[in-house]
Design a protein around this nucleic acid. Sequence first.
DNA 1: ACGTTCTGGTTGCAGAATACAACCACGAGC
DNA 2: GCTCGTGGTTGTATTCTGCAACCAGAACGT
Lengths: 151, 151
Amino acid sequence: MNSAADQAIETIQREMTSFARRARALAGRLHPELSLVSYTLLGHLEESGGCRATDLADHYALDKSTVSRQVAVLEREGLVERRQDTADQRVQVLQLTDAGRRILGRVTDRRRAAVGERLSGWSEEDLARFASYLRRYNAGGPGDVPAAPDA
Amino acid sequence: MNSAADQAIETIQREMTSFARRARALAGRLHPELSLVSYTLLGHLEESGGCRATDLADHYALDKSTVSRQVAVLEREGLVERRQDTADQRVQVLQLTDAGRRILGRVTDRRRAAVGERLSGWSEEDLARFASYLRRYNAGGPGDVPAAPDA
DNA sequence: ACGTTCTGGTTGCAGAATACAACCACGAGC
DNA sequence: GCTCGTGGTTGTATTCTGCAACCAGAACGT
């Protein structure tokens, strides 16, 4: 099958890859104080309103050991805190601290500004459509839970 | 300023970030024989039809030392070859070998299949539009970072 | 109750990717 | 011919990562 759809898929996979490739460097330049990993972990904590380390690992396809270490760093920096779950003593519920929320907010602002600048010439309609495509792409996918469109 | 456009930009930056975060793991699962880095470097060589290491570094916002080492690996594996530029003895033009082209093709196929599966429910029109948005976004200034207004 | 298995998490270890700085070689301009 | 800029490599240190081994608490079966 070599249709127009195929062409589009080829382009999508190439452009998404290209973007991903640059993302780390972008994060490094835009907010050296919060690595791309840390940023996304904090972001997920905010979105989810607190979750377990395992959830983070699943969500980002990381090994639980990696998450464990990353979280340890974030905790040492006072950006997240862990609370033992009362029901299950194994579980540590992770949550943003106020400091974490503050830093996350600052970094998000800066990122949004950067992205916004890049999107400055776009019409509101295009922006909305692009956003919805991205959300749909990330949400969808086999092997991935259809993810409640809550947040 | 909290317009619809702002909302869209917020979403775009979040979703792009989320995607980038997973990309490495995806590559690891999908084609362990070719890391995300190697894949993108080979991809750029194919697209460009051969270029210098410096071009790769610029394009992906990598340090030239990083590229140098990555290319060394790819050369050792016989996937790229370097030719001294006749005009400028400093320059090494990098090009895919047949083996490199073969592997790149295989991996691209696999990636396209994965992406395609994720996009299976999409209309042809949506695919085309999504692709064009991504291309437009990535093309937005090879100067790369939209120059953080903060720093 | 007790042992087995499962789940959430940490730690030891090793490998890969990366940046920065120092360096070498060549080319260009004065 | 010097000096400076450019393309590339190498030394060094850091960070991210996965895998495997491990520990502790829960769940389940007998």
